[in-house]
Every structure is written in structure tokens, then in C-alpha cells.
Design a protein around this nucleic acid. Structure first.
Lengths: 199, 199
DNA sequence: CACTATAAACTAACACAAATAGTTTGACAA
DNA sequence: TTGTCAAACTATTTGTGTTAGTTTATAGTG
């Protein structure tokens, strides 16, 4: 007496993503996922290959979601304004969809093509936004890496509960992003004496 | 015919840490761990409560290892020199012990007391190093959060293979850390026009 | 309007890791 | 020498992922 549910690959991925948001700590099980979809566990295998592939799929979904949000944030903005807006959009993403963000970080194979596609969209946006600052090609890459590291690092530590002090996190984040903005506006600060050399 | 191996909790944790370094991608199983220790799986339960507790223990071990390395790096240094040395020591830790770093990040309960102890040691070091810069108390906290975010974010993205462009990573890392050093030396850059306000 | 092919659900069973229960043994202390 | 106990063991249970094989609802065809 199996009755046809309208199960699709997309529904499964989105439900999995939602479940991870509701309980970011606990690991995703096919049993729970099937229960949420009101289906027996093996039925999932009609739509996905296995658990690892599903995790990868969720990560890809998250990467695109993030790229979409950053794109929206950047629309109609330029320069410092765009950089700040995109940074805040990233942080909002982590706040609103914590489990999805974690799933994207913990992708089984982070280097995979389709997963990189979302990241690439973000990179291209950043390149366009940084264009008018007149950085050298190399410096632009350093700058993009720096911004990604700063924002990603902040939200990851925040999500992991890594910031204990009772000082406003929004303020800290703004401080961080303004540090970056100052750097790309004011290139002479990068000419500081570099006394420390790597051994 | 069970013969007494010199198994201890400490040996188990260190072996688990080593195994994660050798294969950072794959998940730790008690079966493999027991095999590496030339023991049957249930014997591990004489020393640990369960797998989750072991993971937590490995994370704590990693946090202390990191704090030790940062402490060593800072000895005999001050100011910019100390900040740069500690940043590079963090990056070296991730390079040398990638699995241990991941295990520390993915701790079951990142907020737990003993795990925070290592992080606290690092925080105290940073506070002492930043002392002479004459920042306000609040600004000092912002600065520490910023540095942690920058360094942590960079090494995490690097480890996840997040930086694709063929530009030297050491150079990018130096660029990043110098950005921080410039900020704490040159406070007027933080007085930039803040056109973007959070909605 | 039947008839059939197929996708998508199901039940049953297997594989494998974690965890528990209960047993055995080796080393140290009296 | 002997009693005790920590630390190993074997055997078994539980839970999740996965596969095999079966059933059924629906869509398309004559």
C-alpha cells in the first residue's frame, strides 16, 4: 500500500538543510530525515545515492544560497558601501541559517566543481567591487583573501561560541570590516616596516 | 590470554590525535584506533567514556598544544614582532597538525570549560601583547577578536582548499597580519567615514 | 476504457561501528 | 604465596547506512 508522495531530490535537500538549521549541533541521519518527510528510510535512495552525496548536495545548496544573498546585498552599491553590505550579508546568512553554513563548511569534498561554483560567483563579485580601488592584480588577490578570511573567521568563531567577552559583537564585526576598508583605501599602511621574516 | 599493554587515557588521546593528522579527512573510529593501539575495541572503554568524550579530549589536547606554541612564539618578543610571530605560529600549527586543528574546531561542545582554558591562555597573552598600544579596553577586545578572526579564518579557508588562485599564500598571510598591525598602530584609520549603518 | 511500463514507495535483510555485559588474567601488596 | 583489582578479553546488543527484491499508483498507449 505505498502511496505516492511528491518526493524529489530538491525537497530532500531542502528538508535536510532546514533540519540542520533547527539543530545545528546534531548530525544528520537518514532515519530522521525520512521521518520528517513521512517516508521509510530506503525510499530516500530513489532520489539520492547515499548519505555523503546528500551532504555534498546540501553544501552546494548552501553555497548558492550564500552567493545569492551576497549578490543581492551588493546590488546598487559600490566601493566601501558594497564591501560593508556584503560582509554584513555573510554574517546574516550565518545567523539565519547556522546549520546550512556549517554543512557548507564541512562538505565532504570542498574542492568539488559544483561546490566551487558558488564560491566563484562570490569571488567575481569581489573582484568587480575592488576594481575601482586601483590595486595591483596581486594585491587584489591578497585583499580578497584577507576579506574572506576576516569575515569567515569572525562568523565561524562567533557560531562556535568562541567570543566570550561581554562586548557587542555587531560592533566588533564593524570594527573588523572597517579595518579592511581602511586598508584598501589607504595603501601606504601596507608599506609598514616588516621586521618579522619567516624563518 | 589478555596481556597487559601500557594503555592510558593520555596515550589513547595522543594516538587519536596523530591518526587524525595522518588522515585529516576521514572520521575517527574506535575500531581503527584500537587497531593502531593493538588492542580490541572494547578495551578502550576502560579508559574513556565513549567516542564523543574522546573527541572532546582530543580537542582539549589540541587547544593546549596550540596555546603552548603561541606562548613559545611570543617569548622574548613584544609589540608588532610578537603579534606577527604568534600569527605565524598559529599557521604553522595548522600546517603541522591539520587533523588536530580540525578536531579542535569540531569539538562536540566548544563552550566547555576545560576546552576554553587553552583559548583563555591565548587571550591573556594577546591582552599583554596589546597592552603597550594604548587602546581603550573596549577597543582592545575588538582588536583581539579581529586578529583571532583573521588568522583563524585564513588558516581554515587554506586548510579547506578555499584559496584557488596561484598566488603565494605566505605572502597573503603576511598581508593579512600586517593589516592588523597597521590598524593597532595607526588608530586614525578607524575614524574613517562610516557611511554604512546596519539596517 | 482497459493494459502495461515504470517510477517510487515498501518490507526484509545485511554490514558495520558503537556500546554493554560478563569473564579472564596478570601484576602488585599484604 | 595468595587475594584483589585494573585492564584486557569474548560475546552480544543496538542503531544507522545500505542493498535486494517486491508492490503499487500513476501516466501513457492502443
Amino acid at each position: 500500500m505505498p502511496s505516492r508522495r511528491g518526493l524529489t531530490r530538491e525537497i530532500i535537500v531542502k528538508t535536510a538543510a532546514d533540519m540542520q538549521d533547527q539543530h545545528p549541533a546534531q548530525v544528520l541521519t537518514l532515519k530522521d530525515l525520512a521521518a520528517a518527510l513521512e517516508v521509510r528510510t530506503p525510499s530516500l535512495y530513489n532520489h539520492i545515492d547515499n548519505l555523503e552525496e546528500l551532504r555534498q548536495e546540501v553544501a552546494i545548496y548552501g553555497a548558492h544560497e550564500l552567493a545569492d544573498r551576497l549578490g543581492s546585498a551588493a546590488i546598487g552599491r559600490a566601493g566601501d558601501d558594497a564591501l560593508l553590505a556584503m560582509s554584513w550579508a555573510y554574517r546574516d546568512f550565518v545567523t539565519n541559517r547556522p546549520g546550512l553554513h556549517l554543512a557548507t563548511q564541512r562538505a565532504p569534498r570542498p574542492d568539488q566543481e559544483e561546490l566551487m561554483a558558488g564560491a566563484m560567483r562570490v569571488l567575481n563579485m569581489l573582484h568587480r567591487v575592488l576594481e575601482p580601488y586601483g590595486l595591483s592584480e596581486k594585491e587584489q588577490i591578497h585583499a580578497i583573501r584577507a576579506l574572506r578570511a576576516m569575515v569567515h573567521g569572525f562568523v565561524s568563531l562567533e557560531q562556535a561560541g568562541g567570543f566570550g567577552m561581554p562586548v557587542d559583537l555587531d560592533e566588533s564585526f564593524q570594527y573588523l570590516v572597517e579595518m579592511f576598508v581602511a586598508q584598501v583605501n589607504n595603501r601606504q599602511v601596507s608599506e609598514l616596516p616588516t621586521s618579522f621574516k619567516r624563518r
